[in-house]
Amino acid sequence: MPAPTLEGQMLCASVYSYAVQSNGSFSSSYPPYDSASGLIAPVAIVGGAGKPHVDACLVGRSSALNAVVVAFRGTLPPTERGMAPALDWMNDFHAELISVPGIPGALHAGFWGSLDALWSRLLPQVRALRQAGDKTLPLYLTGHNKGGAMATLAAMRFARLEGIEPAGIFTFAAPKCGDVGFAKAYPFHNIHQRFEFQDDAVPHLPPSTSLLELLRQVPDIGKRFQALMHWNYTPVGTLRFIHWDHQVRGESPELEVERTHHLLRLMAELQFGTILKAHGADCGDGYMTAINPTGVCAVSKPVDVAGLMAARGHQVSDAVKDAFEKRKLFQAK
């Protein structure tokens, strides 16, 4: 059965997209996310230069919505074998801003390239699936992690270059994909729900100008951020922040300060396992538990990743900690 809510179905579709393998194969059985997404016989699309392919999505009709859904796959986890994860992460770090004809503002070069690698196969599938007799079905776009950034860019590309207006965009744990010019021109803020969870670091990336200004003050490493100040990456859509009190909150200056300070405190305390865990979207992880508390996961089985990053020897210098403490960033809540 599909998940009880629309956002729950979109989250499950986003997780379902990870069933597409880097070699182009696709496991159509991916419980519980396949049935909970409501997608009927989705088609897997892969692309990118060479093999293995690092860009992928699912496109299919939704039994619950009577609509077409495109779910973009996020960044491959480092646990997957082969070169695909390394290539995918390199794509994420290709964060230079580029101009694209017909799209306002400047865009993340890596994410746009990933979308472009799928477009020639994705567009015909979407056009064909939307035609249901004499009726044209609405289009929904979704994705987790990098997939959320691709869904955002796809919304603009469909609308501006193909004349297809999406009916809804749902992104989860998505990084930013464009600058302030792109954000100002983005017409879908009201139908784009942007879910972000507690101490998930990915939605803070690439860093905003305000965060870069803060990082620039850090001794020893601050100068490394000086060259990034001109980027001015800006989020889009309507924020649906899953707070530490388990309530969903909207955008506010106070929330932005609270989130930034909380995350930087965890980093200084080397709590990288907590930060990594906050990004997960599977059963037992924060996004799935908050958005689909019932009707999807029979039993929550949290994955213990505490210490995974710290075990790799990451350290923060005493000078960095002292600088943050002087700015009162690591006071307990």
Rank of each mutant, 00 (worst) to 15 (best):
F197T: 06
V100P: 05
D199V: 08
T79I: 12
D318H: 09
M156W: 03
Y186M: 06
Y186F: 15
L215Y: 00
M156P: 10
G178S: 10
L137W: 04
R194Y: 06
L76V: 05
L137I: 05
V202C: 02
S29H: 13
L118H: 02
A49L: 08
D200L: 05
D34G: 01
L270R: 10
F272T: 06
D220S: 13
I164R: 02
A71I: 01
S300E: 13
A159C: 06
D318C: 08
T234I: 15
F26G: 04
A128R: 12
E325I: 05
V43K: 15
C297G: 07
D318T: 10
Y233R: 05
G8Q: 09
V248M: 14
F182G: 00
D304W: 05
P302T: 09
A167N: 06
G105D: 07
I169D: 02
F330L: 12
L215F: 00
G307F: 06
N292K: 09
K326M: 05
P302K: 09
P104I: 05
L329M: 15
R240K: 15
G24A: 13
M156Q: 11
L215M: 12
V15D: 04
S252H: 11
A84V: 12
L263D: 00
D220V: 14
K223T: 14
A13W: 03
A19H: 08
M309S: 10
G24D: 10
G38Y: 08
P124D: 14
A106P: 00
R130P: 00
G8C: 07
G74T: 08
L329N: 01
A268M: 11
G82T: 13
H144C: 05
R240W: 15
A268L: 11
R259K: 09
E258F: 10
P138H: 04
P77I: 04
I45V: 13
Y30G: 06
L264T: 00
V46H: 02
N66W: 06
W112Y: 12
A151Q: 01
L129C: 11
V68Y: 05
F241G: 10
R73Y: 01
M1Q: 13
K146I: 01
L214S: 00
N292E: 08
N232R: 15
T75Y: 07
S63D: 09
A298E: 14
A49T: 09
V202K: 03
F158C: 05
H192T: 15
R224Y: 15
M150D: 11
G102D: 02
A174S: 13
H144M: 01
Y287L: 06
A149M: 10
G313Q: 11
K321I: 15
A95P: 04
A56Y: 03
